[in-house]
Each structure stands twice: as C-alpha cells, then as structure tokens.
Amino acid sequence: MSSLTVRELSKETWGDFESVLGANGGARGCWCMHWRLSIKEWTEGKGEGNKKAMKRLAGREPVPGLVVYDQDAPVAWCSLGPRSSFPRLERSPLLSGVDDDEEVCAIACVYVEKKHRGSGLLPGILEAVCDWASSAGYTTAEGYPVEPREGKRAGADTAMTGIASAFLDAGFSEVARPRDDRPVMRRKV
C-alpha cells in the first residue's frame, strides 16, 4: 500500500476526481455533496448542480477532500475536513458528534473507483488520508463507516462512508455505536 498517495482537490486534480466518481458523480449524482447540503438542496442539485457545487469548493480552504492515487492512477476519493464542513452530518441524529471538545478530521466519504472495489485498497487509502490529516494539523481522524450485516454486502449508497473492518485494519477504534450497523471510529494521527 506504500504506493498510495493523496492530492488535495483543486482545479489541477479535478479531472482525476471526475474519473474516480464516474459519469454519475458517485452514487446517484451526489458528487460528494450529501453531507454538505440539506436533503432538499442535494436533491434539487442531483447531478450537474451538485457537481458545480463541489467544483466551487475545489482548491478552497478547508480542503473539501483528497484524490487518492496508486502510482499515478487515481483510484479513490475521500471527502474530509472539520465536522463543521458537513452541516448535514452535524444535524444527523444518527451520527451527531461524540463530543464537542475534540476537533476531528471528519472522513465523511471514501469512494473507491468501481474497477478497484474489492481489491483491498481501503485500509491503505485510510492510512494515506490519516497521514495527510496529520500533516494538515489534525490530531484525530473520525469515520462513520457501515458494518454490513453478516452475509450481506454494502452497496455504493451505503458504503460511501467506508466499511468498518477497513477502518479497524487502518488502526481506528470504535468510540460509539449509534446503531448496530453504524460505528463511529477514531484514530489519533
């Protein structure tokens, strides 16, 4: 996994971001705006509107996310930043903050390009993302993965936040479990 690197989303990496998310912009025209907009705004912007909204964030502070590369090939996208960057996450009764005292780098979405899914890249992606978070001054990374029920596979819509076993493999620990299939996980970076 040492070949995985990350680059911040910017005008220069926008084409790679589009390549990873594909023509549909991830799941259902999301373009990784799910946690950033109200459900009404997200639904109205589905597709092109959400894409334009994310493009406006590219290259701004706080960084909206990272494109993940294997060698020079873009293989994944990670939406991250302070929890305050994700108003819908902040309002979520399911994923509301564990505590308000800890400033975390919220890993809101981990989207692996379709042809790379199931290849075991996710723990390495999380490692590379945590390395970036540390270099950006964060002390804690926090994720909101799903834990698929036994014998079930998570679809793109539900797996967008990552898979719990990959977070464990990347050194995260569970700090809360608001629902049986939704742990909140943290790692010091």
Rank of each mutant, 00 (worst) to 15 (best):
S2D: 13
T5W: 08
V6I: 07
V6D: 00
V6W: 01
R7V: 00
R7E: 11
E12A: 14
E12K: 09
T13F: 01
W14M: 04
G15C: 06
F17L: 11
E18D: 12
E18P: 12
S19M: 09
V20S: 07
L21N: 03
L21R: 06
G22K: 02
N24M: 08
N24W: 09
A27S: 11
R28D: 15
I39D: 13
K40F: 15
W42I: 01
E44R: 10
G45T: 04
G47D: 13
E48K: 15
G49H: 07
N50I: 02
K51G: 05
K52N: 11
A53D: 05
A53C: 04
R56S: 13
R60V: 08
P62H: 06
P62Y: 03
V63R: 06
P64T: 00
V67M: 02
V67F: 07
V67R: 00
V68F: 08
Y69K: 01
D70A: 05
D72G: 07
A73W: 10
V75Q: 07
C78A: 15
G81M: 00
P82I: 00
R83Y: 00
S84K: 10
S85V: 03
R88P: 04
R88Q: 14
S92G: 12
S92M: 08
L95M: 12
L95T: 00
S96C: 12
S96V: 08
G97D: 13
G97E: 13
V98Q: 10
V98Y: 15
D100R: 11
K114Q: 12
K114I: 08
K115S: 13
H116L: 03
G118V: 02
S119Q: 14
L121S: 03
L122T: 11
P123V: 02
P123C: 03
G124C: 07
L126W: 02
L126Q: 03
V129E: 06
V129C: 10
W132K: 05
S134W: 07
S135E: 12
A136E: 09
G137K: 07
Y138H: 08
Y138M: 05
T139N: 07
T139A: 07
T139F: 11
P145M: 02
V146D: 04
E147N: 13
E147Q: 15
E150I: 04
K152L: 14
K152Q: 15
K152D: 15
R153C: 03
A154L: 08
D157K: 12
T158W: 14
A159C: 07
G162F: 10
L168C: 05
A170S: 08
F172Q: 03
V175Y: 06
A176S: 14
P178T: 02
P178C: 01
D180M: 07
D181I: 10
V184T: 08
M185P: 01
R186C: 03
R187V: 02
K188R: 15
K188A: 09
V189N: 05
